[in-house]
Amino acid sequence: METSHDLDRAQWRKSSYSGTNGGECVEVADGCAASVPVRDSKDPAGPVLVLSAGAWQAFVDGLR
């Protein structure tokens, strides 16, 4: 199991469904093996939640 993540150089992306009105948005970072880092786009220096790839997929499937 991966226990640490170096996110200093992470490339964060926001959903294409996110508007530009400063609403509630999350960003995810690509390129982390077997995990998906998630953060609040309004607080990029804030905490990061790191989910397993399976947990992230279940979350996205639940949104559909």
Rank of each mutant, 00 (worst) to 15 (best):
V38Q: 02
T3P: 07
S16L: 15
S16F: 12
W56T: 00
D43W: 02
V60Y: 03
Y17E: 14
F59S: 01
G62E: 03
K14A: 14
A34S: 12
R13G: 14
V48Q: 02
S15N: 08
K42H: 02
E27T: 06
R13H: 13
K42R: 07
G23S: 03
G54H: 04
A34F: 09
Q57C: 08
G31P: 02
V60H: 03
Y17R: 15
G22F: 04
R13I: 13
D8G: 15
Y17I: 10
T20W: 09
G62D: 03
V50T: 10
E24L: 12
C32G: 00
Q11R: 15
L63I: 11
A45E: 13
G31H: 06
H5I: 11
S35P: 02
R39F: 05
A55V: 08
V26P: 03
R13L: 13
S18G: 07
E27L: 05
D40K: 04
S52V: 00
V36Y: 03
G62N: 04
D43H: 10
V60W: 05
T3F: 14
D61H: 10
R64L: 12
D30K: 01
Q11F: 13
A45W: 00
P44S: 01
A53M: 03
A55S: 13
W12D: 10
C25M: 08
G19M: 09
V26Y: 08
F59E: 00
D30E: 08
C25L: 07
D40M: 05
S35E: 08
D61I: 06
V28Q: 04
M1G: 13
A29E: 07
G23Q: 04
G22Q: 05
V26W: 08
L49D: 02
W56A: 00
A45C: 04
V28W: 01
Y17Q: 14
D6T: 10
S16V: 15
A45S: 11
L7E: 10
L51M: 10
V38F: 05
V48G: 04
A10M: 11
S4H: 14
G62F: 04
H5W: 15
R9G: 15
P47S: 13
D8K: 15
G19D: 09
C25F: 07
G46E: 07
